[in-house]
Design a binder for these strands. Structure first.
Lengths: 254, 254
DNA sequence: TCAGGTGATTTACATTATGGCAACAGTTAT
DNA sequence: ATAACTGTTGCCATAATGTAAATCACCTGA
């Protein structure tokens, strides 16, 4: 769910992290570039850069600041806490094979889904070389809707408050009441479907994945272009495969 | 080399990052645990935690703070800047195969070597399940010494000042003068060897890897236990394999 | 069910640290 | 030499930290 932070927040840390993010997103920035992107003084930016350099989160080459390789290692380490192993890959790949469509497993965090492993994900780029999205909304993805249907209404509301219901495709549900109606219907099943709500021509079916304590860890989903698989087949044939895969995954998560 | 930061450093950011690191290293911490590890007030720690939560660097479950999966994704993204791809794996695996020993490629950063890819690295653990080290000193590793030999003397000195010359095995060079003598010898060759300087019974040969601009990116090394490969064979047979591998890698780094 | 812990956050306010601004020192390209 | 850009320094207004004490959220035994 959304972490409902009520206490004090530290602007210094926020500013440092924003600078770090900008450098990461732009694959390296100079002081001048940062100065034009960040609303704070040059000297202040320098202080942040000095701090991040000294902490080895950044590296500087020829006046350009880059995120360090050490950050990559820290991230790798952070990943150890999450289901990753061969299990996830095996289950997702098997689901993709069984349905002959793309499958993926996402982690549920802060009211969004973060891509953990996709059957065709290779170096985060698809066949066209465009970068895969790594963050998804819940309201317009199959696994996301299935997760929302399991949450308490106030939790859903806080997620809507935080992330909104942005339209990303023709069929995206952008109205809270409509969403709650949809969730009520889903609640009786163990899965949810999307019909061109995420991207045009794309349909998918998804379900939540729980850990040993029953907490929602993430979501598993599978789907493809409408000319390859229609809605009937999606629910008739894919639902079982999906739920089997969920079970395999959950039993592996102790 | 070491980033020689002279300007102002921000304690707020440093404190936030220290808390983040502690949580990462301990795989989750409570406020009480952090309070006992960090020299700052509980209320202040809360402010840091609030900030890191809101920035989605942390996640909280049942009073325990964990590093978020999003951090893992950020790290993955940071890694894209570095040679990773199949090229590194191919070259390292080929070097390991040709010598029948363990090979690895490390990134040179902030005066240390960070593990990028090792031929037998699997999930960061070795056969015994113990976690692999991901950071290495330069003075007691083969690739590290080869890199030091290419640097200017003042750069080497600043690295020694920063990291020292900690003894990690019987043969570790812990005296600066001895190290400089060793580096002078290495300078005439394109590689360096370690003889039980890193770990008992372990010998290895390593060399620097440069990018298209001639900057040192990291190091490639290969070696194994002394009962499998002696020093003579290391320099006679492995040196060529190593230098070939370095060349392959460098030509792939444009 | 209720009083009494226990630990997690938040508050209030004095003490320090940081942010913005502007001047200046160093480097590099023109 | 000039211009352009990077990074540092000094000075106040603003923000963060330390301390102690007040809330809050749970849990537990009577």
């Amino acid at each position: 769910m959304i972490e409902n932070v009520t206490g004090r927040r530290l602007k210094t840390t926020q500013a440092s992290l924003e600078i770090l993010s900008l450098i990461l997103e732009h694959d390296g920035l100079t002081l001048a570039e940062l100065d034009s992107m960040v609303d704070s003084s040059k000297s202040s930016i320098c202080s942040h850069l000095n701090t991040l350099l000294e902490s080895r989160y950044l590296v500087k080459h020829d006046g350009v600041y880059h995120v360090s390789f050490r950050v990559a290692l820290l991230g790798e380490r952070a990943r150890h806490r999450y289901p990753n192993d061969e299990v996830v890959e095996r289950v997702v790949d098997e689901l993709a094979r069984a349905t002959d469509q793309e499958a993926n497993f996402t982690i549920f965090e802060h009211g969004r889904l973060l891509m953990c492993y996709g059957s065709s994900t290779e170096e985060g780029r698809d066949a066209n070389g465009t970068r895969y999205r790594s963050e998804y909304h819940l309201h317009n993805t199959a696994a996301g809707k299935a997760i929302l249907a399991e949450l308490d209404r106030d939790e859903v509301e806080s997620i809507i408050d935080y992330w909104g219901l942005p339209r990303e495709s023709e069929g995206t549900i952008t109205n809270p009441d409509q969403l709650f109606d949809a969730l009520d219907e889903i609640a009786t099943k163990k899965y949810a479907v999307v019909d061109e709500e995420f991207a045009p021509n794309l349909i998918a079916i998804g379900a939540p994945v729980h850990d040993g304590d029953g907490r929602i860890v993430g979501g598993l989903s599978v789907g493809g272009p409408k000319y390859q698989v229609d809605m009937t087949r999606l629910e008739r044939e894919f639902a079982d495969e999906l739920l089997n895969a969920v079970e395999s995954l959950e039993s592996a998560l102790t």
